[in-house]
Structure formats: C-alpha cells, structure tokens
C-alpha cells in the first residue's frame, strides 16, 4: 500500500476528532476526541517512518502515546473532581473563568 493511503486515513480520523471536539459538550467525550486526533497524528508519524525506513517516527509516536496517557490521567482526575463537587459535567455550563 502506498504511503498516501495511510496519510489520507490519518487526515480523515483527525478531522473526525476535530469535529467531535467542537460538537460534543461532555468533557469525557471531548477527551476521547482528543485521543482520536493524537492517534491520527501517530498514524501519520508511523507512515512517514515507514516511508523513510527510519525508526525516528516510531519513537516519536511512542512519546506521543506517553503524553496522551498523561493528558488522560489529569483530564479524568479533573472530571472526577468536578463530579465530587457537584459541578455539572458539561463544558457549556463551566463558564466561571469567562469573567
């Protein structure tokens, strides 16, 4: 398979994730959509790694996975804290910083 195909799939998944971040209001689902975007970037990185026959892209993808795991832990911690304080789990309701 040509590298083009993998890049196209990656772009499609990235756009689906970006659309989800905009259209959903549940922070849990927004985190899931961020995961989609990060994974699309991973796919592109690994496709380029294959294209060059070089491992650097795969290392980059592993580091991206680490950062994504960190983002998930902190994000889920924030959501659990919100739930404990009876704050509505809805990004449209969280407008205290708006001033």
């Amino acid at each position: 398979m040509n590298v083009n195909w993998f890049l196209t799939v990656s772009a499609l998944i990235f756009c689906i994730g970006a659309g989800g971040v905009i259209s959903r209001r549940n922070p849990l689902v927004i985190l899931l959509c961020l995961e989609l975007m990060l994974n699309a970037a991973n796919l592109a990185l690994i496709a380029f790694s294959r294209m060059h026959g070089n491992h650097d892209g795969q290392i980059f993808a592993i580091i991206v996975m680490v950062v994504a795991a960190c983002e998930v832990t902190v994000g889920l911690g924030v959501i659990v804290a919100m739930y404990r304080r009876r704050v509505p789990i809805d990004v449209d309701e969280l407008r205290e910083l708006q001033g």
Binding site: V3, L7, L12, F14, G53, N54
Partner: peptide, 23 residues
C-alpha cells in the same frame, strides 16, 4: 479541515508518497 489536509497531501512534492516506502 479535511479538504485542507487532502490538498496538502496531494499537492506535496514528496515523490516517495506514491511508493510503498523504503525497502
């Protein structure tokens, strides 16, 4: 966004994109 990315992929000058990559 997908249109922009598709233009970027199709319009790039990277010849290797149309191959299966390095041996």
């Amino acid at each position: 966004l997908f249109a922009v990315l598709a233009i970027a992929i199709l319009g790039s000058g990277l010849q290797a994109l149309d191959t299966e990559g390095a041996p």
